[in-house]
Design a protein around this nucleic acid. Sequence first.
DNA 1: ACAACGAGTATGTATATACATAATCGCAGG
DNA 2: CCTGCGATTATGTATATACATACTCGTTGT
Lengths: 233, 233
Amino acid sequence: MTAPLKERIRADLEARILSGEWPPGYRIPFESELTDLYGCSRMTVNKVLAGLAESGLIQRRRRAGSFVAQPALQSAVLRIPDIPHEVEARGEHYGFELVARERRGVGPKDPPASGLAPGEPVLALTCRHLASGRPFAWEERLISLATVPAAAEADFSAVPPGTWLLRHVPWTEAEHRITALNASPALAASLDLPPGGACLSVARRTWRGDGTLTYVQQVFRGDLYSLGARFAP
Amino acid sequence: MTAPLKERIRADLEARILSGEWPPGYRIPFESELTDLYGCSRMTVNKVLAGLAESGLIQRRRRAGSFVAQPALQSAVLRIPDIPHEVEARGEHYGFELVARERRGVGPKDPPASGLAPGEPVLALTCRHLASGRPFAWEERLISLATVPAAAEADFSAVPPGTWLLRHVPWTEAEHRITALNASPALAASLDLPPGGACLSVARRTWRGDGTLTYVQQVFRGDLYSLGARFAP
DNA sequence: ACAACGAGTATGTATATACATAATCGCAGG
DNA sequence: CCTGCGATTATGTATATACATACTCGTTGT
């Protein structure tokens, strides 16, 4: 109740953007309209919108208005890699195989680190990424159908699920857990590695607001992949 | 020349903080003093200081004033790990061995990714981190003596160089490159691993303003270490 | 001596106002 | 029809002002 006005305005605008009520590209009301809507001065609205722009949630253009930003393929701090994009940026041909696709509930066999509740409906996907025809990465993914119902209809035989998600669903937070592991015989066969070859495992959990969007474990050939991150305090 | 006033003020304050002219804990001038100094209104100064506070560069306390923040041991986005701190947080005893220490110029053998110019004076350090007496990580580091002259006098037999740097030198930007590799026989011996065991390699370059502070490659036992990062777009 | 209270003050928030800036839209002219 | 120019307009920056808030410090009273 006694929360500062500008915080309440900011929370309200953020909620509309994150809920999808104002999708990417949507032109949000002008400062003058928001001034009327919230019954405050333009300076107050202006400071809120300037803050949202600095946070990257909206883009502002003089005379045109303020627009909800497109979901960022990459951030300045640390990016969620889009594997096809990265492979092609190295001048190689990208290939993709969908190994398994199943709609089911979260079971006891799924990693508890996924943050998905047992029984929650998910789309479970297993796939393999290729660079110039050579196996490159192995991916096992769970997508929450409660948070991303549209995933049930997506054609993941053509577009890898990571790419599809980055293009269609905005995310607000992500967590990586990165480890090195020796390839098991089965994994070595899938990645065309000698058994025991070093692999880089990236487990990522992605949120949108409070709900977990997706949990994915990607295992890369250590000799073909490195992960970069640039950041500031 | 025609740069917006608030940007010039912000740049000026940031420069004083990053140069060390205003060290951590220093009470920066009151808004009223800055108002006089820059010949502008308090609102303008207030917005600049509010921005600096949101970026974490300063902390503000009513009635007391605004203070330069302590260099952050960890950031909200992605941290530079302080290995002793992490080991002890897991309930293990931390140990440290300085293997080599040499003051020299950057040579052709040093990795070009370090970003240090050939011939630039550096302190080259090699050390080993132990957790509960067991080898844990192997570290090779270059510290630029042009940027951090105080490093020449520091006692790195007691405090690991990473910890010393985090405590004494503020940084503005860092870059990680993370790879998985199979341990060479020599590395395997140093880390008490079977030859070929998977290791996680973290190469990090750290800047302060324009100058490279340090370049370090840390190789961790893959079975004992994972790297976490949590971030937002 | 010490706790409680109150004055003073730096920051926090909000408003009204003014002018600068830049990009879009529409209209006029070729 | 297409181009270019000017009017319009939403944002960007800055000022002056006002009051709220919370913390510090000094003083007062027990």
